[in-house]
Write a protein that binds this DNA or RNA. Structure first.
Lengths: 123, 123
DNA sequence: CGGCTACCTAGACGTCCGTCAAAATAGACG
DNA sequence: CGTCTATTTTGACGGACGTCTAGGTAGCCG
């Protein structure tokens, strides 16, 4: 039964998960929070959105820059951006009519660290 | 060594995704394949399973070592192991009555690289 | 063979999730 | 104010997913 209301917004919540999962077993709590982040990355549209935003100039992009790159409707894009935002992978800021989304490198790096394979750790 | 026209299913296909997503936008095909891997990590039980296997002695563990650590039924564990196996994150081998699952460091490292934030890439 | 253990498959059930169309909100501008 | 554009919210629908029980397969041993 892993369907508790997930309270997970900022990368700081994950600060105690900065250990490669190959190094020591995750406890249930860490796993719950990390899984939320990976689940957010588990959709092709969201992955591409994140990549587009992160690789864009200044690590940020306007929604209008993103919508055209996909074949899904604008509300769907908006929904996916919300998911990414709720996991702390991106943040958003309104500027006049437009909304800009920015990638959060710290969140990315944390997940990268969890999956990393330190030297000598490989079987 | 170079590109092979072979259409394998899993981790091998991801070889051309070894670039941080912060570096350049993923195309639809790469995103699709990477998302499958991240989706596999997007469940708390699977994350803990992977962590247990990877951090176990020799990077491998018997199913019987895993079942007790969770409050879900054995078939559910088996199902999750299958998902991890299908994405190439683990492999399995039968030894007599027991089945051992082994973590695949290369698959982990690839995903880690995709999420990594190279120096100077942060906004 | 029969029975035992370890593990997997089949099928069912309820929930979650990605998608859309339609409507709502926010801001710019005349 | 009214209208236009940009973006989000709402509500609905269909399919995917995690879980279970029941039953099946594989190997060991007496």
């Amino acid at each position: 039964m892993s369907k508790q209301p997930v309270r997970l917004t900022l990368a700081t919540d994950l600060d105690d998960c900065r250990v490669p999962l190959i190094k020591e077993p995750l406890n249930a709590d860490q796993a719950e929070r990390l899984a939320s982040s990976f689940k957010a990355l588990g959709d092709p549209v969201r992955l591409r959105l994140l990549s587009l935003i992160a690789s864009h100039e200044g690590g940020q992009a306007c929604v209008c820059d993103l919508t055209d790159a996909f074949e899904v409707s604008a509300p769907t894009i908006s929904h996916h951006l919300k998911v990414l935002k709720e996991t702390g992978l991106v943040s958003s800021e309104r500027r006049g009519t437009w909304v800009y989304y920015r990638a959060e490198p710290a969140a990315l790096e944390l997940l990268s660290t969890v999956l990393s394979v330190p030297q000598g750790a490989a079987a």
